[in-house]
Computed example of a mutant assay.
Amino acid sequence: MHFKLIIVFVEDDKTDLVLDTARENGAKGATVVNNARGEGTKQSKTFFGLTLETQRDVLLLLVEEHLSRHILEAIAKAAQFDSKPGTGIAIQIDVEDAVGVMHQVELLTHELEDKI
């Protein structure tokens, strides 16, 4: 079984929405890194040296490759990545190998045997 890693950079108030959406569309779990900071095309405004921007979270989702594009699109739609600038971005990258995922493989094998 082959996996993709979906990496999501999202405003912290949308983290739960993204996690729920990913799970509803086939993701089995995620790792959340809190309090990341990002900067888009416009520089952040500061007030006495403090940045005036919302916090970001980084979500790491290891998903089965046949589900990855569907999950990526569902996340983008739910969190409005393409309709509201600065809301967040999501990317997927190939995973060459993974260990510690045998429980996921067993679950996914039963779920995907009719689809692939």
Rank of each mutant, 00 (worst) to 15 (best):
K42A: 12
H66P: 04
L17G: 02
S83D: 14
R23L: 11
A98G: 04
F47V: 05
I7K: 13
I89V: 14
A36W: 03
G88L: 08
A78N: 06
L72I: 05
T87C: 03
T41P: 01
E111V: 14
L52V: 03
E96N: 13
K28E: 12
I71N: 07
I116W: 14
L112G: 07
E111K: 15
E24C: 00
E113W: 12
E64P: 06
D94H: 08
T54M: 13
N34L: 01
N34S: 05
I7N: 13
V63R: 00
L52P: 01
I91Q: 02
K77S: 14
E106T: 15
R56V: 06
E113I: 15
K45C: 01
I89L: 14
E111P: 09
T31Q: 04
V99A: 11
N25A: 03
E24F: 00
F47K: 07
F81H: 06
K84N: 12
T54H: 15
L50A: 05
L72A: 04
E53P: 07
R23S: 10
I75Y: 09
L108S: 11
D82I: 08
K42E: 10
G26K: 12
T15I: 01
E11D: 11
D20W: 00
F47T: 04
H103C: 08
V63C: 04
T21K: 02
T41Q: 05
K28V: 05
L61K: 06
K14L: 14
M1T: 13
S83M: 11
I93H: 07
E96T: 11
G86C: 13
G38H: 05
K84M: 11
K4V: 05
E106F: 15
L52T: 00
D16P: 01
Q92E: 14
K14E: 08
R37T: 04
L52E: 02
I91K: 00
R69G: 09
E96I: 11
G49V: 09
L17R: 09
V33F: 09
Q43R: 10
G38I: 01
G88C: 12
L112E: 06
A79D: 07
T41I: 07
T46S: 09
V63K: 00
R56A: 08
L62M: 08
L61I: 12
D94E: 11
E106C: 12
T15H: 00
L107V: 12
D20A: 06
Q104W: 09
H66M: 10
S44F: 11
V33T: 08
L67T: 10
G38W: 04
I116F: 15
T31G: 04
K84Y: 10
I6M: 05
F81D: 03
D82V: 10
K14Y: 12
F48W: 05
D57H: 15
A36L: 07
L19G: 00
Q55G: 11
N35R: 10
D16K: 10
E24G: 00
V105Q: 12
S44W: 09
M102K: 15
K28N: 13
K4P: 03
V32G: 00
L62I: 09
G38F: 02
L5T: 07
L62P: 01
E53C: 08
V95H: 06
G49D: 03
V95P: 07
E39A: 06
E73Y: 05
A30M: 00
E111Q: 15
L52I: 04
A27W: 03
H66N: 14
T87E: 08
L72E: 05
K77F: 11
E11V: 09
V99D: 09
V101E: 10
T54Q: 15
T109S: 15
